[in-house]
Design a binder for these strands. Structure first.
Length: 957
RNA sequence: GCCUUGGUGGCGGAAUUGGUAGACGCGCUGGAUUCAAAAUCCAGUUCUUUCGGGAGUGUGGGUUCGAUUCCCACCCAAGGUACCA
């Protein structure tokens, strides 16, 4: 038999699988279904590094295992191919993002193919493919045409809302809607103009237009995310950033806050991930309380009206009698109104200063207490005492109502504020000292100095005060969520276009049959000179609503408006401007898992048969960095789809696993300061040195640097001198994130060439538990590689002989362990188990087909190429992929004797072989009679002897 | 600060319901084979030791015949989150 030629074997079977469609999944089968999914990648220009396939390998092992177990397995792969890097590249080079993306996908595909995954490539999706994003646009339209009915607790068609409005107005409607939605009767509704009706409906739709405050960078012409801003200026370029209101599409995800929270109990997802979603949603129970603003004599801003109120949300309504002031966010709409003449200058200055700070800045600076008194007062709803109104930037406009009733004795922030500005701190807790800090322990709270709440606990007082508030019409129990509606517009080119055009400023959806609305070509990928998004550069970007097609912008009449030229939507009979924003990155990934079920369907997003058969994802593996992004938005869309009766499950992934990060092991060289001399690590302490990273690929297993290759690597090393130890240059090692800047990125390609995909797959699993992050060190791969060579050797002779008892024991031990491991996603321990098994069978000189055949199947999910080759060698003509998983039989593991560990006070001191059927007393006698026992005891009499038959003997004394 | 996860040899890690700590692999040491190297094979490899043994799973306590495993307090690291009313 030839040696293990993995290159030939792997190429052979990869070709075989592709040609035979081995992993093509059918949408109907008598076999039970199993849907295994890995998060699809963004195809970046850098290609895959060894960290990427970790999750894919795990999913692949599980998929292959399930196939052996008789399941009809769906295991698809695709690309999240809209995104910023391709657009950034286009801005720099002018190359169309579609071309960049296509090239990157090609490279990804080549790399993935080399790793031997059992993907059903016939089902590949790409979010940037019009045939795919047609359905992203379609879902957007579904959301637009829906509202959330809190009575039925689900999304309903907007038509049902209109019907209610026509019949009874909105008084009895309980819906998730904008805060500023006015009340109207049926008569009002029917009297509204069509445009007004549209405006009102927009306040209810699940996707809607709203003025949202964003971080606008005028120099870059785009909105920046919080983490793209550093110290108030853009991270790229250092341009100033301002807070600006922009009209943007939003997703009413808040409607689903409670259901997103409740759903977490039903799914088997990692606890940390559930926790971060729970925190993100941020449910808090409390009450909303309304304070009337007191008109003050001598207020220049006599705008204050009797009816002006401040609504606050509090989780501690029980402490309402301790409220000694109120604090509004500087942005609060009432600030200007209630500020008195004396305070105006100070307040204005404060408001302006706050506006300059980014939200992130404000939040990072927790220590500084700052605020200004407005001069205004509110009336305490119970005591009717005036309560001074302050503004302070510790109150965030975006949370709750942007106003708090400050109870300094019970809240540390309020306490600090009150201390700083000498505001009284009334104590409303019984027997508690608040001279040093606030008292916030709910559990031991006893209310005092609080009228009808005196003597009550937190719980009772809360209940009572809410009832009283409701009675006097000053508040009610309320649940508040931190979760905010998600902004869905991006001022970018490379994303899904909205299927939206505007008539008289009101958004209109393009009819389903004319989708997809394809991304237009543009000359430049930057914002326009007038600050419009890149799509504003398109010359062919207007909607002809009569012929239902995109037409040239020239069809739109230009009119003068407010002194500058604007598109007039009334012109040219039925030609209207199209939306210029595009959808965000998470749009395409929010339903891709369902689309895989029926990816070539152009009639519907997926057929009822397909979704009816596959139902949901059984196993989803991906990175934890998506915890509060993709994994929350996709749950939201799924619940919406469920409400619409489009999917049978309201949670799409039953089980989810986060694979850990693979960190890189950087190589460090030490340059003697001010010279071009490099000193080996063992000698570095004798010099003053700087640490520099060099390419890890220049270093061998023993941390020895290949100096000649280093000289070629970068010009700065060409003339370098090296101070060696024992004739070698030894580098230092540093474990850090795998990244180009540390030169520690390891590509799978070279490893596949040198050791093969099976070695790489095994090694990635062998590194450690799937969920944990662990350092990569290519050196260790020789261990699994030589295991594969030993495995190969084991099949040199194959005979039809009866297996020995030892053979069977080795095999069945392995079956049991490997099966348990796969079920528990403990793939690292399986690899050890295989090694042990092969070592044992080799020692036993096993050649029995009855052992080697099932062993090949066991190995096949992990190292599929070699398994196929061995399977063929065993005489099979069909792929091993569908071979039945071996069945574990206990009888082969039954032992007749046990090597008992004999411990003294819990410490094992020696071992003693005894029959397993020996009784407790006999064991005790045998152990006590043993000479080593006597030596241990040194004449003492044991106080106690614990015998656990089949396990252990412990002697106390 | 809060939440979560983790802390075991030189390194990655194992120990499934409390029962032989360090499986398996890397690296290292010695040996065989070889003209030599690679590859392969064999032996050893937690620390300590007066070679009998003793200590040992981040630290300190506790429960137990027995604790890496359970409980309490603390320390450290990684990730998430943060003036959330």
């Amino acid at each position: 038999m030839m040696s293990y030629n993995f290159r030939k074997i792997e190429a052979k079977w990869q070709k075989y699988w592709a040609e035979n469609g081995t992993f093509r999944a059918s949408n109907n089968s008598d076999r039970p279904k199993f849907y295994a999914l890995s998060m699809f990648p963004y195809p970046s220009g850098a290609g895959l590094h060894v960290g990427h396939p970790l999750g894919y390998i795990a999913t692949d092992i599980y998929s292959r295992y399930k196939r052996h177990k008789g399941f009809n397995v769906l295991h698809p792969m695709g690309y999240d191919s809209f995104g910023l890097p391709a657009e950034q590249y286009a801005i720099q080079t002018g190359q169309h993002p579609a071309i960049t993306t296509e090239n990157n996908i090609k490279r990804y595909r080549e790399q993935l193919d080399k790793l031997g995954f059992s993907f059903d490539w016939d089902r590949e999706v790409r979010t940037s493919n019009p045939r795919y994003y047609k359905w992203t646009q379609w879902i957007f339209i579904q959301l637009f045409n829906s509202w959330y009915n809190k009575k039925s607790d689900k999304a309903e068609d907007i038509a049902s809302l209109i019907a209610i409005f026509e019949k009874e107005g909105n008084e009895n409607v309980e819906a998730s809607c904008d805060e500023d939605t006015p009340m109207f009767s049926a008569a009002d509704w029917n009297g509204f103009s069509a445009k007004t009706q549209q405006e009102i409906l927009l306040k209810y739709r699940l996707t809607y237009l709203a003025d949202t405050e964003v971080n606008w960078c005028p120099a870059l012409g785009t909105v920046l995310a919080n983490d793209e801003i550093v110290n108030g200026v853009s991270e790229r370029g250092g341009h100033p950033v301002i807070r600006k209101k922009m009209t943007q599409w939003s997703m009413r995800i808040t409607a689903y806050a409670q259901r997103l929270l409740d759903g977490l109990d039903k799914i088997d997802w990692p606890q940390p991930l559930k926790d971060s979603q729970t925190n993100w949603i941020g449910r808090s129970e409390g009450a909303s309380v309304t304070f009337n603003v007191i008109p003050v004599n001598g207020v220049t801003s006599s705008a204050v009206e009797k009816s002006d109120t401040i609504e606050v949300f509090t989780t501690r309504p029980d402490t309402i009698f301790g409220a000694s002031f109120m604090t509004l966010a500087p942005e609060h709409e009432l600030v200007a109104k209630i500020t008195t003449a004396e305070q105006k200058a100070e307040v204005d200055a404060y408001v302006e200063a706050t506006a300059k700070r980014s939200e992130r800045d404000r939040m990072a600076d927790v220590k500084t207490v700052s605020g200004v008194f407005t001069g205004g007062y509110a009336e305490h709803p119970f005591t009717k005492e005036p309560v001074p109104i302050w503004i302070g930037d510790y109150v965030l406009a975006s949370y709750g109502t942007g106003a708090v009733m400050a109870v300094p004795c019970g809240d540390q922030r309020d306490y600090d504020f009150a201390k700083h500005y000498n505001i009284p701190i009334p104590n409303i807790f019984d027997g508690v000292d608040i001279s040093e800090e606030a008292f916030a322990d709910k559990a031991t709270t006893v209310i005092a100095n609080s009228d009808f709440l005196n003597g009550l606990s937190y719980k009772d007082a809360t209940q009572k005060v809410i009832a009283e508030l409701e009675k006097i019409g000053h508040g009610e129990g309320k649940i508040n969520y931190r979760l905010r509606d998600a902004v869905f517009s991006r001022q970018r080119y490379w994303g899904e276009p909205f299927p939206v055009y505007y008539v008289d400023g009101m958004p209109q959806m393009i009819d389903l049959e004319y989708l997809p609305l394809q991304l237009p070509e543009v000359e430049k990928y930057l914002p326009t000179e007038t600050g419009e998004p890149p799509l504003g550069n398109a010359t062919h970007w207007a909607w002809d609503a009569r012929n239902n097609k995109v037409v040239s912008n020239e069809m739109l009449k230009q009119v003068q408006h407010d002194g500058h030229s604007e598109l007039d939507s009334e012109s040219h009979e039925g030609v209207y401007p199209l939306e210029l924003n595009t959808m965000p990155g998470w749009a395409g990934s929010s339903q891709y898992f369902n689309r895989y079920m029926d990816p070539r369907n152009d009639e519907t997003i997926f057929s009822e048969e397909a979704i009816g058969y596959w139902q949901d994802v059984d196993l989803y593996i991906g990175g934890s960095e998506h915890a509060t992004g993709h994994l929350l938005y996709s749950r939201f869309w799924q619940k919406f789809m469920f409400d619409k009766g489009l999917v049978p499950k309201d949670e799409y992934a039953q089980k989810l696993i986060n694979q850990g990060m693979i960190t890189g092991t950087s190589a460090v060289v030490y340059r003697v300061s001010g010279t071009n001399k490099f000193v080996s690590i063992g000698l570095k302490d004798k010099y003053e040195v700087e640490e520099l990273r060099v390419d890890v690929n220049l270093v061998n297993v023993s941390n020895e640097l290949d100096i000649n290759s280093l000289r070629d690597w970068q010009p700065e090393y060409e003339g370098a001198e090296f101070i060696l130890e024992d004739g070698k240059y030894i580098v230092g090692r540093e474990v850090e994130k795998m990244s180009k800047r540390w030169y520690n990125v390891v590509n799978p390609d070279a490893i596949c060439v040198e050791y093969g995909a099976d070695s790489l797959r095994l090694y990635e699993m062998f590194l450690g538990p799937l969920e944990q992050s662990k350092p990569w060190n290519t050196a260790g791969i020789t261990g699994v590689h030589s295991f594969l060579k030993k495995l190969w050797k084991l099949y040199t002779v194959i005979e039809d002989t009866e297996p020995t008892a030892d053979n069977l024991k080795s095999l069945h031990k392995t079956i049991k362990k490997v099966e348990e491991d796969i079920e528990n996603f403990s793939f690292n321990t399986s690899v050890s188990t295989f090694m042990i098994c092969v070592n044992e069978l080799t020692a036993q000189k096993c050649a029995s087909k009855a052992i080697l055949e099932p062993l090949a199947i066991l190995v096949s999910p992990y190292a599929p190429h070699i398994a196929e080759e061995l399977w063929e060698r065993l005489g099979h003509t069909e792929s091993i992929a569908e071979a039945a998983f071996p069945v574990f039989e206990e009888k082969h593991l039954v032992e007749s004797s046990k090597e008992y560990p004999i411990s003294f006070n819990g410490k094992m001191r020696f071992k003693l072989e005894l029959p397993l059927d020996m009784g407790k007393d006999d064991i005790e006698a045998a152990v006590l009679a043993h000479e080593k026992t006597q030596a241990q005891l040194q004449g003492r009499t044991p106080k106690k002897v614990i015998v656990v038959p089949g396990k252990i003997v412990n002697i106390v004394g």
